[in-house]
Amino acid sequence: MRVAGIDLPGRLWIGTGGLTSTSLVGEIVEAARPGLVTVSVRRTSDTERGGLLDMLRALGVRILPNTAGCLSAREAVLTAQLAREALETDWVKLEVIGDETSLMPDAVELLDAAETLVRQGFTVLPYTSADPVLARRLVDVGCAAVMPLGSPIGTGRGLDDPRAIEAVRAAVAVPVVLDAGIGTASDAALAMELGCDAVLAATAITRADRPAQMAAALRAAVGAGEMARRAGRIPRLTTARASSPMAGRVGT
């Protein structure tokens, strides 16, 4: 898949949030073969070596910094600017949340931050509510993709409202990446069947009993969902329709 003219090697994107140990990163990346890997940007007192960053660079994966935890456009813009400086990438997963309880995006601040960052030359991938109108507004200000949430961050409930995801898909021409709420493989497959271009999973993998195994399962599910989407599913009917021929039955 392509985002902002760049070919990404996979449709499963992974987040490093919730890792119990950075030593797990290698086996998770190997199992997921992700299109990219997200990180947050946080204060550090250790300016010696960035352990996680070094590990990801050694694995050769594309790194996507996020602005997780930012509550205003101002904070998110500064965090993105720091990320660009620290990680040498102008890509950013833009998150501006409204409060720390719901972790739901603040649409007004998000749109404001997106517009500012696009103007500053960033490739902006916004984490957004599953709202086709907002998605279109984000694309109008120059976002390279939209990342609607399936259900609130960390809930693992899957897609609360599949029709809203379909509506976002129909509303924009840029890549749609299902973000937040993935709990297991079937959630990822459903997102792809609905027309998403990629799926981002973090804690679904990192907090699973066997993270690398879940990464492999999600990768397979993303592939299966995409293949099914391209195959063209049969319509849902309200009444039965026989698949065996009626002609030639015995006793007629």
Binding site: G15, T16, G17, G18, L19, T22, T38, V39, S40, V41, R42, R43, T44, S45, D46, T47, G50, L52, L53, L56, I63, P65, N66, A68, T79, L82, A83, E85, A86, L87, I153, A180, L200, A202, T203
Partner: peptide
């Protein structure tokens, strides 16, 4: 402040400095 300018950037009383790096995150 870009790294190239750190050498010449003098600190002043009450300055607030943020130092950040990549951390785990989703």
């Amino acid at each position: 402040v870009p790294a190239a300018a750190w050498h010449e950037t003098r600190l002043s009383e009450n300055d607030a400095v943020e130092v950040v790096t990549a951390h785990q995150g989703g």
